[in-house]
């Protein structure tokens, strides 16, 4: 009953459908995550899927398992039970050194922007292309496009410390999308931001979504979830307790 096929949104772009087999971007089948060291049950028998091109909120109290969800998709943690598939591919497929290939298919944004302090905005974004071996001649066009998407084309030479927190977070988003991943994961992207900057960042994430990227946002920010309405998954103590197709914040 938590399953549902989503049909709002958006022009799926062609490249995306090639890269993603099937209609599901994220697919959890009876996934349980118990952290091995502390034996904390972080996620308890979660089954759900996120379709290509969706924009989904993940809400829940602190400790409900939002970051754990992200960790599973990122393969930073392995499920104790069940199966996680991303873009049609079981994560077990990305063994050892191939984890890098999985990560290339998703952009990530966290509460801390994780920008490299010694690099300016342009270089921080280009860093994502560098580490994945994209030819240098492609950088200027792609970085510029990404910075334009987040509205920071004019600040490309600024160092992170010379940018506001909201701007820093937008640079982080630009870095996450510069390699055109089909999926963007944002874990509390507005956690450090004031309301204005939060809205700004959320608009940027919606814009990214409008380009065809699947976006998952874990957040505490009730006002955002209620202002910019999207499908909302609610976690409570590791269980998926609500799946609202049209949004709404009800813990």
């Amino acid at each position: 009953m938590l399953h549902h096929e989503h049909d709002f949104i958006l022009p799926n772009n062609a490249a995306l459908s090639i890269r993603c087999r099937g209609k599901r971007m994220i697919d959890f089948k009876h996934v349980t995550l118990e952290y091995p060291v502390t034996r904390t049950l972080a996620l308890d028998d979660i089954s759900m899927h996120v379709g290509k091109g969706e924009f989904v909120y993940l809400v829940g109290h602190s400790g409900a398992g939002k970051s754990s969800f992200m960790n599973l998709v990122l393969k930073r943690a392995l499920p104790s039970k069940g199966e996680v598939r991303v873009a049609g591919e079981a994560l077990a497929h990305y063994r050892g050194g191939r984890t890098a290939l999985l990560r290339r298919r998703m952009g990530t944004v966290f509460q801390e922007n994780l920008l490299l302090p010694h690099l300016n905005a342009y270089d921080n974004v280009a860093f994502a292309l560098r580490v994945t071996g994209v030819a240098q001649r492609e950088w200027p066009a792609r970085v510029t496009t990404a910075l334009r998407t987040v509205g920071l084309e004019h600040k490309k030479y600024a160092l992170p410390l010379q940018l506001s927190q909201g701007e820093q977070q937008r640079v982080a988003i630009a870095r996450a999308i510069v390699s055109d991943p089909p999926l963007l994961l944002a874990d509390e992207p507005t956690g450090n931001l004031d309301p204005d900057n939060s809205r700004e960042v959320l608009k940027v994430l919606q814009n990214v979504n409008l380009r065809g990227t699947t976006v998952v946002v874990a957040t505490h920010a009730r006002d955002l979830v209620e202002t910019f309405r999207h499908r909302t998954l609610t976690l409570r103590k590791g269980k998926l307790v609500r799946d609202d197709p049209y949004g709404g914040y009800a813990l």
Partner: peptide
């Protein structure tokens, strides 16, 4: 190590 963890998230290979 900060840079390395960012690199990992961005999909850098171990070799890189």
């Amino acid at each position: 190590r900060n840079e390395i963890s960012v690199m990992r998230l961005l999909g850098a290979t171990r070799g890189f």
